[in-house]
Design a protein around this nucleic acid. Sequence first.
DNA 1: CGTTTTTTGTTGCAAATACAACAAAAATTT
DNA 2: AAATTTTTGTTGTATTTGCAACAAAAAACG
Lengths: 150, 150
Amino acid sequence: MKEILRDIGAIARALDSISNIEFKELDLTKGQYLYVIRICENPGIIQEKVAELLKVDRTTASRAIQKLVIKGFVDKRFDAHNKKNKHLFPTEKSLALYPLLKREGDYSNERALDGFSDEEIDCIHHLLERVRHNIEIDWDYVKKGQQRHY
Amino acid sequence: MKEILRDIGAIARALDSISNIEFKELDLTKGQYLYVIRICENPGIIQEKVAELLKVDRTTASRAIQKLVIKGFVDKRFDAHNKKNKHLFPTEKSLALYPLLKREGDYSNERALDGFSDEEIDCIHHLLERVRHNIEIDWDYVKKGQQRHY
DNA sequence: CGTTTTTTGTTGCAAATACAACAAAAATTT
DNA sequence: AAATTTTTGTTGTATTTGCAACAAAAAACG
């Protein structure tokens, strides 16, 4: 059987490692850049959805965002009509940072796809979307405490 | 530009999360399954190479393997001709566990590729290998303290 | 309308992760 | 052969990560 998961894991760890090193000087510690980018691109989003986008635990997102609020990267606003949801907004500080974060991500993407034709880029893009969708199903299932049978 | 890194990150986190939950009952804490599998498949490998395969920091691998030795999953043997290298071997305990770990990985792979034709599987496999190779270059570069320009 | 379930969020732990800084052996260069 | 660089490995310290366990609001259900 053709194995793709190990490559995906290694690629993801390598890229995360690179970004963490590069963003250290921006006062963003491990993983925080992920949240800043998502909140900049989805102002008003709630924590639960951020965790779902990133596929991290709800508690991890909770604490990461707490830190970002303290550091002044994120604003947490309460909904007038809903006492439970807390909407997240980027501050001026993150908005100013966003272009740099985006450029780094784009650069990594270009580097990752170095030597790929337009057709190949299209192809891997679509295939990965399908993998993501497939895996989301199992993630939701296992995260809810269900057992997979293998 | 077509963005593939976010999907790769999300897929990797989701899969890692699933495996960690499923392997908890085997007394393997977060991430340890990765090391056990690699050492079972590459008996005699040294730590530095494990870190390189997985794309984790050398210090992370060092401590993870320390724990695995204490727990009886890994044997560390010294080389008679080389005082620096420490060769890693699976114990009976890990070898007994290996088939289960492998089966889980294979199952996740199947789930990830659900609905894919043989051609599509081949395609994503080759394209990911190329991405991995591309990213390895930058990983080595940045990990050695060099600056990327973006 | 009242009860049950789901959603959203937080803390208490326990543990992994990784940058700095260091050390020593091995390999390379001069 | 001696000096330098690279490889391999470890600890100190700071931080993230996430399962349990909990809470409260909101939504679904009878």
